[in-house]
Design a binder for these strands. Structure first.
Lengths: 85, 85
DNA sequence: AAGACCAATACCGTTTGGGTATGCCTGCGG
DNA sequence: CCGCAGGCATACCCAAACGGTATTGGTCTT
């Protein structure tokens, strides 16, 4: 699991679509699809329900979403922490 | 910043030596040296004081240590969170 | 003064990651 | 019923990142 995967996952979850998440992350669609699948494989969990209209979070995906946001928030706080405690 | 960098950093901080941290992380010494330096560069902070006896945390390094442990603990909890909330 | 220890650097091979092009499926409009 | 549009998945290629081996430089010890 990488921080990039978590960022991609949050973007897909929030936009409901790999395609929209791709432009938001400034990458193309295939890398996102791959990283999401890799994340699902590693966690042995299906995070999204694939429908013809996009991607919808599963229960497990919803749990990961709140957790991933916490992780990313902590990571983004790192520079401040290092500087000012 | 990557999770690997944080793991390497914690290992070096706890062992006080890149060489010992390397065997603990099951990698060789040069990759650790490089990742630690990359982390310092990215954070624009010196994390260790280099002495002939090894590496000692600076103030900023100590702040990063507690923070990095939090991040890694959160990440390691991910599989459980996904499964059981 | 020589050897030991440790971090830093050079160089190389492998792996990972992203990009382009394309295929497949589903839903919609004629 | 058929073609078209939208969206995810896959194939293939190239560049960047990562780790390993070998070596250097510097300091402490004897």
């Amino acid at each position: 699991m990488s921080l990039t995967q978590l960022e991609y996952f949050v973007a897909v979850a929030e936009s409901g679509s790999v395609t929209r998440a791709a432009s938001r992350c400034a990458v193309s669609q295939p890398p996102l699809t791959r990283q999401i699948r890799a994340l699902e494989d590693e966690l042995c969990a299906q995070l999204f329900e694939r429908g013809p209209r996009g991607m919808a979070l599963t229960r497990e995906g919803e749990r990961l979403l709140v957790h991933a946001r916490s992780v990313l928030a902590l990571v983004r706080a790192t520079p401040r922490v290092v500087r000012s405690g």
